[in-house]
Nucleic acid binder design. Sequence first.
DNA 1: GATGAAACAGCCGAGCT
DNA 2: AGCTCGGCTGTTTCATC
Lengths: 153, 153
Amino acid sequence: MDQTDREIINMLQKNARIPLKAIAQEVHLSIPAVSARVERLERENVICGYTMIADPVKMGYHITAFINMELKPEQKDGFCKFIRGVRNVAECNHITGAYSMLIKVLFPSTMELDRFVGTLQKYGKTQTQIVFSSIVSARSIGPLEQEDPKKKG
Amino acid sequence: MDQTDREIINMLQKNARIPLKAIAQEVHLSIPAVSARVERLERENVICGYTMIADPVKMGYHITAFINMELKPEQKDGFCKFIRGVRNVAECNHITGAYSMLIKVLFPSTMELDRFVGTLQKYGKTQTQIVFSSIVSARSIGPLEQEDPKKKG
DNA sequence: GATGAAACAGCCGAGCT
DNA sequence: AGCTCGGCTGTTTCATC
């Protein structure tokens, strides 16, 4: 994981469909050399995949919300299994603090959100926060810049 | 925005680098037809871009945290400008509830996180929750399924 | 929206440093 | 061992129907 790897990661984060040729020119390497690096980064799971960024509103999801959840300890396994199966869940993290789960969800309207929050009640107490607007939309964070040419990742 | 568009979106969300050929076979259309649809979806900003999914830990970000922030009203503009310039901010949303901003950040260690939270103090009160583990990692939500062949966009 | 041709990008070999 | 160069395959784009 050197400076060149980091530049490749940066370029692919900005545009996953960029041709290897363009990357090769930028990092002053041949196309096969770039290809080999990308394959290595994929193999090492530094690169986990490539996805499309879509506008949730244009796809019919007018409501984005974060649900804080104080989970009943004995319900944790059931909750995890349940939440993974819900397609409207964009993200779910186990966190520190009074509420132990933070869930990001997308719904067409508050009606569906309300219904979903209702189904969560059996797992614990919830507190829902609806998103008014995005200051920074979910974005990829580039690799750390570091001077020392140390270990690989 | 018909069923075919939704299938195309689904496939590109799963893998942004998939060849048009593979999409064409799946949706039973010719390659140029798929290409035209993708271009249209990009033009209409339904598709906002393509990005790489990376492992934050492998890139050196060992700490993911959510910062709830009760923002001083007069500081809103300054805060927005500031937060957009911070590369460690993965997401920032204006939300309902007691705290008006929810910020997702990535840092190498709690030390850098602590320092960042310190710089936020001038904008308002903060409450930080560190992520223990991800039940559902940030993922794309597919388009709504709908029976009626209605409007586009 | 489909077809066929032309342009382009990516992959695999050989040879070089 | 890793990089570059050349030829070959597969993919995309463009013109036409």
